[in-house]
């Protein structure tokens, strides 16, 4: 079925896909580590509060909220493309699951183009939000951390997302053009039974 000798688009796709995978995985690892750091930070704050309660002196922890807010962008936005690669962003698949072949690829291509449009608008727009903070000045309330680095993360993450959507849309277009090819770099629509099966697979480990 697959015509690997005659599929330059497919080869290019899987090459670019691999590069993006690497970047996306890294962003998700950073997000995970930040969440772990948040856990530790929260525990420290509670410990300090217990010390406060007994009037035991401790090093100051001023600006907890500022620090949390500034670092949140690292797990709230940074790994947005990672989730898109896995097809994890919520959508209603009621109609999609009933589509087969070219119709499915057509619908997926439409979804991809729509996403490219809005993400394409959001990138420069969130960049100018960063730019304002950078040029005119902006900071948090208490310990006056500058906010532009956090604001810059948004257009950065959205740019990776744009790349991911581009890869997927080209992937869908390729399938639209030749539905017999093997899918490359696109998340496959799971039927509900598939979904249940993957839940089961993760429960498997639990039962060990």
């Amino acid at each position: 079925m697959t015509q690997s000798n005659f599929d330059p688009v497919g080869r290019l796709l899987s090459y670019v896909d691999r590069i993006f995978r690497y970047v996306e995985n890294t962003t998700n690892v950073i997000a995970g580590l930040l969440i772990f750091a948040l856990m530790c930070f929260g525990v420290v704050r509670i410990l300090f509060r217990v010390l406060d309660y007994f009037h035991i002196p401790h090093p100051p922890l001023y600006g907890f909220i500022d620090i949390v807010e500034v670092s949140m962008v690292g797990f709230a936005v940074l790994s947005i493309a990672f989730v898109q690669r896995l097809g994890g962003h919520v959508r209603m698949e009621l109609i999609l699951t009933s589509l087969r072949g070219r119709w499915l690829w057509l619908a997926e291509t439409f979804g991809g183009l729509v996403a490219l449009f809005i993400v394409g608008i959001l990138i420069p727009s969130s960049f100018s939000h960063f730019q304002r903070a950078f040029e005119y000045g902006d900071s948090t309330m208490d310990i006056e951390i500058v906010t532009w680095p956090a604001k810059l993360v948004v257009p950065f993450a959205l740019t990776i997302l744009f790349g991911r959507f581009l890869i997927q849309t080209v992937g869908y277009l390729r399938m639209l053009y030749q539905p017999n090819l093997e899918p490359i770099a696109i998340p496959v629509v799971q039927t509900l039974e598939d979904k249940a099966r993957s839940e089961a697979a993760s429960a498997e480990q639990q039962a060990r």
Partner: peptide, 23 residues
């Protein structure tokens, strides 16, 4: 409209109260 939408991903997610979610 373009200018407005770009402010929202940052300003609506970077809120202390929401930091409970990942935990």
């Amino acid at each position: 409209a373009i200018a407005i939408v770009g402010t929202i991903p940052h300003s609506k997610t970077v809120t202390y109260a929401l930091s409970v979610l990942p935990l």
